[in-house]
Simulated scan of single mutants.
Amino acid sequence: MDDPQDDDPGHPRYWQNLFGEASTPFEAEPDQPVALDTLRALYSAVLSNYDFTCAMTGARFAPPSEFLHDELAIAAIRPLTAGGMLHVSNFLCLERHAAEAFRDGYISVGPGLELIVDLSQLDPELLERLNPLGKLTLPQVEIAHPDRTAIAFHREHVFLGHL
């Protein structure tokens, strides 16, 4: 049986129940699943725009012999599930270990495109391979430059969110 205090706005329990309810954040579902051809084109475009070079280490690789690259991955800056765009400016071309660290929030990018790392979490071997200038390598095509809003989102929600 319900307690009458649960329905009385003058009683603290009413407000605790009201504000204590779990809420599910709104996440827009795409109207349709993304076509495989679109994903393949995005993947190829990101690798090509970065000239098969890791944006964080500067390591350059040959184009893949098959469709997928053995050494490189693409990583969403602002995850698609968090409202990230399905556009080349929302993706980085990274060595597989760098992509994993970026997704896990162990490495991010500052407002001046400087690399920011969590030294307590980042693999020391990856740290040694990072660009010695401490900056993100940009693609030559300006439309493919990382979106600054997405970078800020990653830094604030993914990088700082894991600390």
Rank of each mutant, 00 (worst) to 15 (best):
D70R: 15
G105E: 02
I151W: 00
A98E: 03
E29P: 01
S23I: 11
E100R: 15
P25Y: 01
F159T: 10
S65T: 15
D8P: 10
I143K: 08
A28F: 02
Y43E: 05
T137R: 12
G20R: 10
D2K: 14
P146Q: 13
E156S: 13
T24D: 03
P64K: 08
F102N: 13
H11R: 07
L133D: 14
R148T: 14
P63A: 15
G105M: 02
R13C: 02
C93W: 02
V141R: 13
A82D: 12
D3C: 10
P4D: 04
G10R: 15
D147T: 04
Y50V: 08
P30C: 02
S23D: 07
H87T: 10
D104V: 02
T137K: 07
R13I: 13
R148I: 09
H162G: 10
P132A: 08
H97Q: 12
P111I: 07
A41E: 07
V46F: 00
P79C: 04
D123G: 08
P111Q: 11
F52H: 15
A144R: 06
D31Y: 06
H87W: 02
Y43T: 13
D3F: 02
V117N: 05
L39P: 00
L92V: 04
L115F: 01
S89L: 01
A101Q: 06
L47D: 06
P64V: 03
Q5R: 15
A82S: 13
T137C: 04
G134Y: 06
A82Q: 12
D51F: 00
E71Y: 06
Q121W: 01
V109D: 01
G110W: 01
L130E: 05
A73D: 14
P25K: 11
L72W: 00
E27W: 05
F159L: 13
A59F: 03
L94C: 04
A28N: 07
G112N: 13
Q5V: 12
L119C: 08
T81D: 07
E21L: 04
T81R: 14
F159C: 06
